[in-house]
Nucleic acid binder design. Structure first.
Lengths: 153, 153
DNA sequence: TTGCTCCTCACGTCACGTGAGGTGGC
DNA sequence: TTGCTCCTCACGTCACGTGAGGTGGC
């Protein structure tokens, strides 16, 4: 993970970790070790199709028993990670690259994000937010106008 | 929408008009009567492909001189209307239906929207806004955390 | 046999982007 | 002939939705 010349605090200080807080862990899952696709789809509120799609994009690789998919706890954490990154506005392609860059680093269920990349993403979302707010304000203005004229009538 | 017993002011009072304010008219266009696709694309900041795509969806129908498209002032206003409705979060399909419902009513370059429909759309955008704000807050929290640890190091 | 859960194609949707290859007038 | 603007396919992208048709164990 680090070269020997670099002081470790600098390398670490510039990295944001996606998915380290357990706050969004939906269910404790008890002592279960494997999960079916239906179980995980229900738990995370996504469709079977979505999980199969993430797999086709290389983001998941559940075990196969005959033709059936069996997901481990690690797969389950991976799903949580994917969905979290999606909420942060990353595309599946980007998430795939982050997973790939992270794979084998044994950093558990989290993705590294440079401070700069994080700042860029904040910019992306802020622009989207701006556009949405503009449209919303316009709609509300229109709605207020028509409600006003309804009162006057 | 309403039975004939309803007084007409109610009919009108319950309708919002999309595209009535001239505030977003980008250019006066001088005394030009027709426009090329490149001119209008540049004026509205969209691609040629986008304007052709809107046409393929039935939202536009410019005159043809040989194979070339020639847009009138009415087409130009129609484009402004489409882009405005898009900013309000409507899909091209929805915009097409609104245009179709409006076509021939001689209400000029504007679309009717029921008060209820308007309220629904406000709800749609507010949910999107909520999701965006949640993700953005999360990203900012992460960024603040890493910047903080960089200072401490 | 019915019913349930799982599966694999494979086309559809949304709003275009992106070449490829051809045309017309200066 | 070169250069510019216009054109029409037609496939690609993004994240899935939506059947169609088949399988396996109770």
């Amino acid at each position: 993970m680090q070269t020997c010349e670099q002081p470790s605090f600098l390398l670490n200080a510039d990295i944001v970790w996606v998915g380290e807080d357990a706050s969004d862990r939906s269910q404790p899952a008890g002592n279960k070790v494997t999960f079916t696709i239906t179980e995980l789809a229900a738990e995370f509120g996504v469709t079977l199709r979505a999980l199969r799609f993430y797999e086709s994009k290389g983001l998941l690789a559940p075990i196969r028993i005959d033709r059936m998919r069996l997901y481990t706890r690690t797969d389950r954490e991976r799903i949580a990670l994917i969905l979290k990154a999606k909420r942060l506005g990353f595309t599946l392609t980007e998430i795939g690259q982050m997973i790939e860059a992270q794979d084998g680093r044994a950093d558990g269920p989290s993705l590294r994000l440079s401070r700069e990349r994080c700042a860029d993403q904040i910019g992306v979302l802020e622009r989207q937010l701006q556009d949405l707010e503009t449209g919303l304000a316009e709609l509300k203005r229109m709605h207020a106008t028509v409600s006003q004229s309804a009162v006057e009538a």
